[in-house]
Amino acid sequence: MTDALQVRGLRKSYGKKEVLKGIDLCIRKGVIFALLGVNGAGKTTALECIEGLRKYDSGSIAINGRMGIQLQSASLPVHIKGIEAVHLFEKWNKVSVNTSMLTALGVDNLANKQYQEMSTGQKRRLHLALALISDPDIVFLDEPTAGLDIEGRISLHEYIRTLKAQGKTILLASHDMAEVENLCDNIAILKDGRIAFAGTVSELTRAVGKHYNICIKTSQGMEKFEVDNIGESLISILKGYHEKEIEIQDIQVNRGSLEQHFVKIARGE
């Protein structure tokens, strides 16, 4: 098996409500994969089933390698010190912790700090370090940068890229589209318990349609256009300015952000 993770026909119901309606996912080794979805789409349930934290009704999950899990909602006893938490999970999993990993995440600075004294960012870094203690092949990160300041986000993004460079597979759940666009190789969008899209960001753009944003700055101000046919539309817009003898100072064309495409898929547009 060259894939890091294969999920086939995953189904899960809570009472009569079917939350996952047969999910298929395939994640290649060494990629950063994002699972996206609006609240209630079944993202957390899917992740927890894959992580083995929640029972599922039917389907199959095959994981190739050791898992490291950083949950969004995880905590530790308030009086435990950073180093004690690291040692507890290290000894329990019978592994030796990679000290350079602790240093890279800044956890070595938290060694003697009690959990209750740590900031949100410090707690997130500690939980990520705990997830990486067993040197996992596949790392699950649930909202890894939630609550972090900009500096914390940047350093965590860098570390996630380092993990990828080490050959690890990363499955990320995030609401931050800029983060996903910036970091991820592949994405899947969950909608009403089903995978509404799976592929790369550029494939998503193609799937959603040839949607372009044109921003033109003139001597009279800024104008924005949303068009589907870029060639004809741009010529027509420019012709209009030319006929009115309006001076064009700048033109920007982009294919729309991941957020816009995500919203289209999530809303079923």
């Binding site: 992580e51 934290l53 905590s75 530790l76 006893p77 999970f89 999993n93 997830a131």
Partner: peptide, 21 residues
Amino acid sequence: VEIYRSDVKNAYQANGVPLSL
């Protein structure tokens, strides 16, 4: 209660520590 009725339980489960510990 601190362990079993809070997110400490999640951290234990996620890191392979049996809850009975």
